[in-house]
Amino acid sequence: MMASRRSRWSSLLLAGLLEATAVHADGLADTRFRIQGFAAQTLISSTNNNFFGESRDAISTDFTEIGLQAFWLPVESLQLSGQILYREAGEGDEEGLRLDYAQADWRFYQSDTTQLGIKLGKVKVPYGLYNETRDVPFTRPSILLPQAIYLDSSRSVLIAAPGAIFHASAIGAQGTLDFTLGWAQPDFDSEAVEYVFLGRNRPGALKGSSAFSSSLRWETPTDTTLMLTYVDANADYEPGTPDTLGAGEIHFRNLLLSFQQRLDTVTLTAEYGQPRTDRSGFGPAFPDGGRDSITRYVQGEWRFHPEWEVVLRNEVNYRDKTDKTGRKLQAATGLPAHAMYSDDWVIGLRWDVTPNFMLRAEYHHVDGTSWVPGLDNPDIFATEQRWNMGLLQAAYRF
């Protein structure tokens, strides 16, 4: 019943977006204004654990993405842009329709080689190579981004937030250098995020207080991208009634290193981070403490035909670098050791049937459950260490 209801909503929203596109068809020819969108439906089946719905030994249709984007350049120095997004992704993301982002980008200084500007509104947060475009299926290297880095269960924390981002870019003989510096109010207020940072859904509310971000990106003349991203986010917990937790605070920070090399028909990508999470003030039921994690992946994409591409990736996540196997956690709490790590081998195939229509298939062989969605698997003792997952996706853009 739930799946069919979501499907009806998806169909109605897609029809509305297509109608809106037709209404603005005349505007599409204007380079100062354009409207575009996308729609994607993914089928997921897995063994031993659920992902984005009831996919264990079944087929889940609970992964739907539909977006409508608009860009307007009223004057040369100002760009207005935004996106309305409809997204369903299992039990962890049932909000449906939402404003994904809406920002004004004022480039207050421009020359032949330098540009300075500031973005205001609900701004896209620069984080690694894919965060700013992660909602658009056509811009992702695979159906799922590497969960070791771009964890979907906590995507709302870093995807976009009310705030301001200063940006600067310079072009020279050694390539292009881009720098950003921003402040925003992150969104921690979801049950999926509570599972990530508090272990399970709590009676109270986890509210984002502030987030600082900075990035430095260098695009070299040899088609190489090097990038450093730093984020520092805080959230406050407001206890509910009744509640075993006090008014605590979560502090998350990460320095992410990114590399990409493009070689004609082959693209090689790697990202590495060591996130740090600290908690304090929650009381004896959730003692003060901190944990350093390790997240990384290595990926290769091969466009072996103009319409076909294959991707191969290995991604690794250790939630505690001092307890990579999870044995310390298991000995202390009795929780499954495999909840502390994951090692995922991924192979995927993309077929661009037309410039606007894409089909994808993807297979995951996973050891560990560190990024398995908690809301889709509420009984942690029912999860299993080794599991496989297959995904099929159809995506259309207009």
Rank of each mutant, 00 (worst) to 15 (best):
Y396T: 02
R303I: 03
D352A: 12
N201K: 09
D367L: 09
R262W: 05
Y341S: 15
T114R: 11
D57L: 02
L226R: 13
D26T: 15
S209C: 06
R6M: 13
V346I: 13
P146A: 03
G37A: 00
P203Y: 06
G290L: 03
Q393G: 09
P242Y: 00
E249S: 08
A247E: 10
T139R: 01
Q79V: 14
T21P: 14
N48H: 02
Y195H: 15
T176C: 05
D187H: 11
E315P: 10
S169K: 05
A148W: 01
L18D: 14
A160V: 08
V266L: 08
I347P: 01
V136A: 05
Y318S: 02
L151F: 09
F252P: 01
P306L: 02
F398V: 06
G121T: 00
F51R: 15
E19A: 12
R291P: 04
A184G: 06
G175K: 08
R34I: 02
L144Y: 09
S10E: 15
A270T: 12
I66R: 05
A361T: 12
A25M: 14
Q174C: 10
T180H: 12
V353M: 14
F179S: 13
Q103W: 02
F63W: 12
E194L: 09
N388M: 05
A15E: 14
T369K: 00
L391Y: 07
G374L: 07
W308R: 10
N254Y: 03
G326H: 07
A332Y: 03
D379C: 00
L216E: 05
G90P: 05
D367V: 12
W351V: 01
D26Y: 06
D100A: 14
N49V: 06
Q110L: 05
L116T: 03
A285K: 01
P287E: 04
G82K: 07
A20V: 10
A382F: 03
Q260G: 12
Q330T: 12
K119G: 01
E54Q: 13
G334K: 14
G175I: 10
R296I: 09
K119R: 11
D379S: 00
A160R: 08
E238T: 10
L85I: 01
Q147S: 15
K321V: 14
R276T: 02
L206P: 06
E249I: 04
M389V: 11
I35Q: 07
R397F: 03
H365F: 13
R107A: 13
Q393A: 07
E54F: 02
S142T: 09
E191G: 12
V346T: 14
T176G: 08
E54M: 05
F282K: 02
T113G: 06
A164E: 06
P355Q: 01
T241W: 05
Q110P: 01
M389A: 11
R350T: 08
L375G: 01
E301Y: 01
Q41C: 03
L73F: 08
G82I: 08
K328A: 15
D100I: 10
R313L: 08
Y101D: 07
A58I: 02
Q83P: 00
T383E: 06
F38V: 00
T42W: 04
K119W: 01
Q330K: 11
A148L: 02
T31F: 13
P126R: 00
F304M: 00
R34K: 03
I165M: 11
Y237S: 10
R262E: 12
E194R: 12
V316G: 14
F108R: 07
N234T: 14
W387C: 04
L13W: 03
T222I: 08
